[in-house]
Design a protein around this nucleic acid. Sequence first.
DNA 1: TGTTCGCGCGCC
DNA 2: AAAGGGCGCGCGAACA
Length: 539
Amino acid sequence: MVRMVIVPDEGDGGWLRAADGGPVTRVPDLAASVGEFEDAGEPRWVVADLAQVYPRLLRRGARLGRCHDVTLTESLLLGYDGRYGEPSAPAAAHARLRGLPPPPPVPEAVTGTLFDDERPPKDGAAEAVLLDEVHAGQMARLESRGRMATLAAAESAGGLIAAEMTFHGLPFSREAHDAILTGMLGSRPVKGLRPRHLQELADRVSAAFGRPVNPDSPQQILAAFKSAGMPIESTRSWVLKRLDHAAVEPLLEYKELARIWTAHGWSWADQWVSPGGDGQRLRPEYVVGGVVSGRWATDGGGALQIPKAVRGAVRADPGHLLVVADAAQLEPRVLAAMSGDAGMARAAGEIDLYEALSGTFGGKRDDAKIALLSAMYGGGSPEAMTLLAVMRQRFPAAYAYVEAAAQAGERGRLVRSWLGRTCPPASSSFKSMGAGPEASRAVRDRGRFTRNFVVQGTAAEWALALMAFLRNRLREESLGELVFFQHDEVIVHCPAERAGRVGEVIAAAGRAATELLFPGTPVRIPMHTAAVESYADAK
DNA sequence: TGTTCGCGCGCC
DNA sequence: AAAGGGCGCGCGAACA
């Protein structure tokens, strides 16, 4: 496979170099050159940092097919070697490779404030040579570390997809959003005031206490209930629900609506929705690998927690549809596959895994669900313990898999996902901790974390693989665009007449992802797919 | 006045 | 119904 190092300049040009030697070529129109190489042979592009580089390339009209992100890969390799958190930029990686002291970090704030003529001219040729060398070193390390080469490829594909999703944006109707908000909260207030419905609820809370109480202040609420003769330990909703007091109902409604208003209200839309396509687009900044388990995070935009109540504002362009697909019960299926538990794998061949397991748990689907979730999350309620005992007996391999991960964590060791993403090390204070209740709590916390890490991390890898396959097929058949991703769920925006084919392609991508991670497994990871005009209609 | 922290809840 | 794992976000409160 041809690899090509690519370094953009500040304008339209840049530098290219065939990986593993050869001269660096200066090109005046980088987007055009990218297109020529893509047409000629689908190279794998070697890029310093897609999050920095790719958005501008996309705006210039370039699209990279496959790539190797040096920064993302370096982070994965550092983690694998127990050097979590060391700098992963190419310059730092290069210094490590050569055994040199690490270069001083370049604060972004400084580069951002420099005028163009104060900044030293970029030496793209030197950077291309450096990237080439770091890349070669990374390839050697990936090969000797299990399935890490697959992980690096999947992570890099994620980098491409994240930038493309922000570029395309999620189709969004500000008019629909405003209508939803107005219906729930009242019309948009002037700055500094609450919307009408919220203010009414706040007034009702104060009236119920007989004095002014700010419903946004947990302290004031605690004090108010205390003087009403109902002391409570927190203002969590399930604590409040136990109380018989006139303030509870308006308070709970206030909390629910206030969250929509502050987190996904008008100012949220002001900030994150902009024109695009045939309408408007929500453009969050995704952070690939932003969660230690490999899940994505967002840097603003709150896109990974769009409340169900607001999803009606996510609407396809005219003549288009949103194909919304989520992997059903992804994490327990992943556990079945990675542990190789035959009994659990048989159940995971069914569409409803929990239903298939219910026979084992006295015919109760909910009990099967609690048993599995407790095994994966470390739940320890008395009820869960009973169900876990059943699970241990009937699905010993699956049980042992997560149990081993928990024990490793409790002993301060590292655990890895299926492809090799590695959890952060235990803190130094964890290792030097003595006995006592605080220490044992920290040990249990660490065990729950590593127990979940192996499953959540592998599920994140499966989702990356799914998206990588899906992205390629969407492109090959010109079907539409990936516009959203949330842990185990994707949205494709496409012309209405292509929605059926998109659904087939999503299902095929899911099968390909399962086969890539777990060749020959009997486990199925089916996709639940709906083609809708509005995201709110998907579930 | 600006920054950090804990809380509570939205999502998976 | 809540509880176990992972997050982001905005708030009030505390602190510098």
